[in-house]
Design a protein around this nucleic acid. Sequence first.
DNA 1: TTGGGTGCAAACTCTTTGCATGCCC
DNA 2: GGGCATGCAAAGAGTTTGCACCCAA
Lengths: 152, 152
Amino acid sequence: MPDAAAKPWGVHAREVLARSGRLRSGVRDRVIDLLAEQRCALSAQDIEHVLRQRGRPVGRATVYRTLELLVEQGLAGRVEVGEGIARYEPLDPGGDHHHHLVCRSCGRLVAFDDPGLERAIKRLGERLELQIDEHEVLLRGACERCRAPAAV
Amino acid sequence: MPDAAAKPWGVHAREVLARSGRLRSGVRDRVIDLLAEQRCALSAQDIEHVLRQRGRPVGRATVYRTLELLVEQGLAGRVEVGEGIARYEPLDPGGDHHHHLVCRSCGRLVAFDDPGLERAIKRLGERLELQIDEHEVLLRGACERCRAPAAV
DNA sequence: TTGGGTGCAAACTCTTTGCATGCCC
DNA sequence: GGGCATGCAAAGAGTTTGCACCCAA
């Protein structure tokens, strides 16, 4: 998730791409801006749809290629929530990260972070003979909206 | 993972299916037996290949239908490690569960369990306004074999 | 001008579905 | 005999690739 207090993610992303020798382009700018607006992950198709709705249609292949590039450069993360679709989200350059809950009722993806969980995973890595480079926690259940529909 | 000390998973699975009014069949028996042998998850294609190698070719559709049935009945679990392929593993009737590490070098899936991790997730559910029905933890890194190749 | 970027369409992979045939009870 | 189970092939969904055209530097 972008850290608004420091440098906006979009700016950071463009800098990293420029530094890696990539040309700047309209499509990449639009994809980056769209991701920068998000609080959570979007699928490639979401991105294609939104950009089309905004009157800036983009080729599907280009969306995938741009996302691949962002992931390669460590700018975006790929989240797999199952069902065979990948979602992408901006990654905090500071290294902070979070996990997701997929709501069974509304399908919404809710982000959260939890130091206790991080600690448990760190200890686990020490306990086992494993080297853990990355971890992903996915919860399935009901989000706060769907859990207490009457309260809303 | 099957609990060998109690009733073998394969026996349990056949009983559950029979109780739910399903016909017994050769293909289902073979898929159940193959899963029962495994220490960890297999993909639908793995299953198809192994059964073909054993001289008992099975239609792809039937494999998927059988796996779907096992998941429906709570007998098997679907593990999504990304890359768009689903893997299936026998589920301990006792409710015990574990998580996985995908090895970056050899692609092996290693199962592990960790009470600390379970506790952290339980607390997390209490802390947030979320109802957590299920959780999945996926680690990526190096398994013990690939981490210390010289030691083996 | 030139090499990277883009879009279209076709290819690919994993999975699901339709339908005729086969087998269990 | 009746219905579920099976297999084949075709359909689907998401993603990747090939290739000709376009644009930024």
